[in-house]
Write a protein that binds this DNA or RNA. Structure first.
Lengths: 151, 151
DNA sequence: ACGACAATATAGCCATTGCTATATTCTTGT
DNA sequence: ACAAGAATATAGCAATGGCTATATTGTCGT
């Protein structure tokens, strides 16, 4: 009853181990970049809408405290997504703009797809916020072509 | 150029603030329970397949180190999802079994739905692992009814 | 029965992402 | 021009989820 009590005899629910390891690894990876994408996407939206992205606005939109935002902005600056001047709003670098554009497009596709399935706009918005970060290129294409088929 | 440079004049990309706050809040919430669901679901699968769930197997499947699993199991035990005897495998409580069943069903629906869209089984498996935790009841229903329409 | 090895437990470290409290700087109205 | 208020910066704390190294306990074969 130690190493392999019931080896591969009935092979019920368990999927291939290596595939599952890879899935979890990739999920942990997505989790790491998730917040960065949310920030950059939101900053791009705030700039597009109001001309600037201030910490208080970011904090308010994300529902977190301002120092939380300040800390994250340092990280985003260190990673080259934004530029910040002390006591001023932040601006996206070229790299930041690229990431924002990609995130925004993906977000939009996911949300539209959910709506096309008949899901209510509010639920679609909430679910898309979580789902968008875990959608691979292949799945995104499938969503897109499904949308094209409908309209 | 300070409080509201371009108030609600062209109202471009930005969605309603309260809705967005709620979305992010809910996403952070899902993130908190995500790992718990993964563990409980995996433990259920291991038990169903081999009769027991050992730390080494869980660690191997998740792709993390054994002490990481040990720490998480303490948390799961504290929250009443599992029962553990020292130096023995873990077992699900009634509460744990319920959560596992729900998670497994949701996971299965999401993965089947992705496959039905024509996505490759490998990608569907990987994406489902991340997506499943962010799918609301309403979206799950939509996935289900879409699957029913196809088969 | 007991030694070797496998599995689990524990200690202590690090990074991340949240928070509150407080200091500093900017902006604005009079 | 300057005081008051708004925004940003910084310090320090907690919880979570990883890790390595090592001690302890179980189990199995001979």
């Amino acid at each position: 009853m130690s190493i392999k009590p019931t080896p591969e005899t009935f092979q019920g629910v368990l999927v291939d181990a290596d595939t599952q390891i890879e899935s979890f690894r990739q999920t942990r990876n997505s989790r790491r970049t998730e917040l960065v994408e949310d920030y950059v996407e939101l900053i791009a939206d705030l700039i597009a809408d109001g001309g600037e992205a201030r910490q208080v606005d970011i904090a308010h939109r994300l529902g977190v405290a301002q120092p939380t935002v300040a800390k994250m902005l340092k990280r985003l600056a260190a990673e080259g997504f934004i530029q910040q001047k002390p006591y001023r709003g932040v601006f996206l670098t070229a790299r930041g703009n690229e990431l924002a554009a990609r995130s925004r497009e993906r977000h939009h596709i996911v949300e539209s797809f959910l709506c096309a399935l008949g899901i209510s706009p509010e639920t679609a918005r909430i679910d898309a916020e979580g789902i968008e970060h875990y959608v691979s290129a292949e799945t995104l294409e499938a969503f897109k072509s499904h949308l094209a088929k409908l309209g």
